[in-house]
């Protein structure tokens, strides 16, 4: 690109990228390795290969209950956040109105508020309106945190749409509702699926809010936190690895759905 290339500096820069990646991925890879290691406190040299921790969580009914709660919450949150996010994205795409910056701020700000504070505020508020301590409260809280992600993904897709497309459909005789069904939704469909899966993955990870808000019905991340606070158990690695694999599966599915949305088998 530029004329003066210095191989030494370029080499050092690439080494720096590698070091950053090692720093970022070592804990992730470590967690996988530890989950298959017999030692309770792994160190060098590593202990022997073992699936003990996976067997333990497999046999723990609490983990299963937490897992199903997480799935249930994730599915509801994905549906709610995607619906809300779609509405917000379409509103931003289509309309200009007084107070729009406030609307957008309200829609997009939640992820910037620390989860501890969100958890505190929501638990305090939801307990006042008798919504705390159950799965619904977790779904509400996750809906707030996840809808901005869904909105951003769908808005991005809408911005790739020829702005005349909607007007063309109106012009060809479809009213606004019909056009929504036959043009806007088909066009944004890949993003809608992506939003469903990504908000589900985010919900999987939002343990802190769940911890504060949920009482008896624990979701998986809350369970993880319980392990950390109580007896430290390498079972967390096994759970974490499984959660990671499920999250990544959601993302890969979303990626496949997002790819080549224009090409259609004929």
């Amino acid at each position: 690109m530029t004329g003066n290339r210095n191989p030494l500096i370029n080499g050092l820069l690439k080494l720096h990228i590698t070091l950053c990646l090692i720093f970022i991925f070592t804990p992730i890879a470590g967690s996988f390795v530890f989950s298959l290691n017999s030692d309770r406190f792994p160190s060098l040299p590593l202990g022997s290969f073992s699936t003990e921790w996976y067997r333990l969580i497999w046999e723990d009914p609490l983990v299963w209950a937490g897992f199903f709660n997480t799935l249930l919450v994730g599915a509801c949150v994905a549906a709610i956040a995607t619906l809300l996010g779609f509405g917000g994205a379409y509103t931003d795409f289509r309309y200009k109105f007084f107070g729009k910056p406030v609307y957008l701020a309200l829609a997009l700000l939640p992820p910037t508020i620390p989860v501890v504070i969100m958890g505190l505020a929501m638990l305090a508020f939801l307990s006042r309106v008798s919504l705390s301590g159950n799965v619904i409260s977790v779904i509400i809280a996750h809906g707030v945190m996840c809808s901005p992600f869904a909105m951003a993904i769908i808005r991005l897709r809408l911005s790739q749409m020829d702005p005349d497309l909607e007007a063309a459909a109106w012009n060809l005789g479809g009213n606004e509702w019909v056009t929504m069904r036959h043009v806007i939704i088909p066009f944004t469909k890949p993003a809608i699926y992506a939003a469903l899966f990504i908000t589900m993955a985010v919900s999987f990870d939002e343990f802190a809010v769940a911890w504060f808000v949920s009482g008896l019905n624990e979701t998986l991340p809350v369970k993880v936190l319980g392990f950390l606070q109580g007896q430290v158990s390498p079972r967390i690695n096994a759970i974490g690895s499984l959660a990671f694999v499920s999250s990544i599966s959601f993302i890969v599915i979303a990626q496949i759905l997002m790819r080549n949305p224009e090409s259609k088998p004929s």
Binding site: I24, G30, I236, I239
Partner: peptide, 17 residues
Amino acid sequence: IPFFTSYLVRVYSLQVF
């Protein structure tokens, strides 16, 4: 990718390191 791993699990792993 890291955004889809549990931060908590990563921190626990770091403890071991």
